[in-house]
């Protein structure tokens, strides 16, 4: 795991205490996670909005294609947020019923 070495080993900024090293490592992991999550979302938006907005690819992107893609992007993110909150709500309800 090379990504950890720069932090724990210290070839970047010198980190003094163990506590600081720990914090830096945690921040790095959380950051990597959010980057991976954003990448996955962008890939899905690309796929689904391309399918939706460009059914027959022409010689260039028309302004209506562009407007469709922009709106689709916004809509997909809204759907993502709705799915996320709805799924988490449901899972929590199930967990409470189970206990």
């Amino acid at each position: 795991m090379d990504m950890f070495k720069g932090i724990a080993g210290g070839n970047s900024a010198p980190v003094s205490s163990q506590e600081e090293k720990k914090k830096a490592l945690m921040e790095r992991i959380a950051q990597e996670q959010s980057i991976a999550n954003a990448r996955a979302l962008v890939a899905k938006i690309n796929e689904n909005c391309f399918d939706k907005c460009i059914p027959k690819p022409g010689s260039k992107m028309s302004s209506s294609d562009e407007s469709c893609v922009t709106k689709c992007l916004e809509k997909y993110m809204t759907v993502w947020n709705t799915v996320s909150s709805e799924y988490i709500k449901r899972i929590q309800t199930e967990r409470n019923n189970f206990q």
Partner: peptide
């Protein structure tokens, strides 16, 4: 959530031919 969003997007917007609102 990524999988489910993809699945529900395909279910709910299958009939929509172009996106007119964000």
């Amino acid at each position: 959530i990524h999988d489910l969003t993809d699945r529900c997007w395909k279910k709910c917007f299958a009939q929509t031919s172009s996106i007119s609102s964000g």
